[in-house]
Nucleic acid binder design. Structure first.
Length: 224
DNA sequence: AACTGATCATGT
DNA sequence: ACATGATCAGTT
């Protein structure tokens, strides 16, 4: 997918574009960019995110930064069911498993990426052909004090496990709003982590994800 | 039906 | 391998 010619220069311009996109189907947007819409997302899991990035002029790439760095905004598409409820957890970023001594919440990638998020709801019902799925009303969100406290609490608990060499004991069940889950090509992917007695060992790469109940509350906050 | 672990594509 | 974009799909 080629890069969009122009990146929005202001938040207002970005929101204007996002709002103009609301109501259109993924197929309509794809057509304007001469992009072929896949039949399903089994082998194109990031296709929608890439398409919306392109449409909104995000700076594509694999850099660990916000999509609109100059605006301090992260873009996230989120699949919703017929009732507007998120269907999937939301990936935030990979989790650091080594060299984390002294790392604080305020210095974390999670904290920075979630400073401001442009949520773009997309119909995710698998019964609806991808090309016909409709783009919803965009939401520009920043965590409030309560949400920030919950995120910080979960992040610190999870990072503590990692720091004391117990990342292997962590499961998706830890955390109220933020969870740690595998994030790699497959279960054979490995990366270094802190093991027993602080000795490095290999484990599956992990990523931080926002749980559905949390993102559901965010959407409700704007749509109710 | 919800949840958790596994997985797919692409670029660096 | 790692970081981007996420959803799949088996189990509970």
């Amino acid at each position: 997918m080629k890069k969009a010619p122009v990146s929005p220069k202001t938040v207002e311009e970005l929101m204007q574009r996002a709002n103009d996109m609301a109501g259109l189907t993924l197929g309509q947007v794809a057509d304007t960019h001469n992009i072929t819409t896949p039949i399903d997302l089994k082998r194109d899991k990031g296709w929608i995110g890439q398409l919306i990035e392109h449409e909104l002029g995000a700076l594509a790439g694999s850099k660990p930064e916000q999509d609109f760095l100059h605006l301090g905004i992260e873009l996230k598409t989120i699949p919703v069911d017929d009732n507007g409820k998120p269907m999937e957890t939301t990936y935030v970023t990979v989790a650091p498993l080594i060299n984390i001594q002294g790392l604080t919440w305020e210095e974390s990638i999670v904290y920075h990426k979630l400073q401001t998020v442009l949520w773009v709801p997309i119909q995710g019902n698998r019964d609806i052909p991808v090309a016909q799925r409709q783009i919803g009303t965009p939401i520009l969100w920043s965590p409030n004090d309560d949400e920030l406290a919950l995120l910080k609490q979960d992040w610190e608990e999870i990072m503590e496990f990692i720091a004391i060499g117990e990342v292997q004991q962590l499961t998706a069940r830890h955390g109220e709003v933020l969870q740690l889950r595998p994030k790699g090509a497959n279960s054979r992917s490995v990366t270094q982590s802190i093991g027993k007695d602080g000795i490095k060992e290999l484990t599956n790469p992990r990523g931080f994800y926002l749980k559905i109940s949390f993102t559901q509350a965010i959407l409700s906050r704007f749509f109710n």
